[in-house]
Amino acid sequence: MRSRGWSRSSGTRDTLLRAARDVFLAKGYGDATVADIVDASGISVGSLYHHFGGKPGLFLALWEQFMRGQEERTSRAAKATAGTAERFLAGARAYLEGSWEQREVARLFLENDGPAEFTTLRRQRGWDWIGGNKRLLGLDDSRESQVLVVLLTTMMGEAGREVAACESERDAEVTIDEVIRLVRRMLPTSPDVARATP
């Protein structure tokens, strides 16, 4: 009995998320309404509010889903590669490829059109990525290392936007290759700037 209820609940959430994604992509967050999402999903207003608390909750759930996918993709790629710099580059490439593969959703989140709390949550996620990149690169706590990891992380975020905005797969491939080439040049090579991760 519980599993059927869980399955129904999960199915309702998935249906609402798919409908919200389609509506947000078609209209943008600001112009989309709860009524639009209810119409597209065939799910009641009450269920929408029960599962997500409203339109902002749906948008943030979609964003979390996208970011979780990006994090899993980069982590898998990094773990499958040897060497500190090569792990970072493999993760960076996977992140950019995800930005292309999920370009419609990525563009939605890059438009700065979202609920009020979105900017704060995105900023916090950025700091989380900076911390993860610092650990991945095995950087010390020096100011130089902090500047480097902030620049690399910011560069990757902007590169993701650039890739998502590409008009063709060929343009995306060229952009990804160029970003990886530039990032490779920025990565530390001397032991006094970075140490190998354990």
Rank of each mutant, 00 (worst) to 15 (best):
K134R: 15
P188S: 13
H51C: 00
H50I: 00
R143G: 06
V147D: 09
S190Y: 13
K27H: 13
L139T: 08
G11P: 02
V149E: 09
D22R: 14
R2T: 07
E97N: 01
R195H: 15
A40Y: 05
N133F: 12
Q102H: 15
K55E: 02
T175K: 14
T154G: 14
A165H: 13
G114N: 07
S47M: 09
T153K: 05
V163Q: 07
A78C: 05
P56L: 07
V38R: 14
R13A: 13
A164H: 02
A172E: 10
G57I: 06
E104P: 00
A26L: 05
A77G: 06
E158R: 10
S47P: 00
G28P: 06
S44N: 06
D140P: 11
R13C: 06
S47Q: 11
K55D: 04
V174F: 03
A26R: 12
V163R: 09
V183D: 02
H50R: 06
G57L: 12
Y49N: 10
R103A: 09
R8L: 11
A32G: 05
R103P: 00
E72C: 05
V38D: 12
L62M: 11
E144Q: 10
G126D: 06
G91A: 08
L96N: 03
L58W: 03
L89F: 13
T154E: 14
G54T: 02
V45L: 11
L89E: 11
V150A: 15
A194C: 14
A165Y: 13
V179T: 10
G28D: 07
A116H: 07
W100K: 04
A165C: 03
L152C: 03
V38F: 11
T81F: 04
V34Q: 14
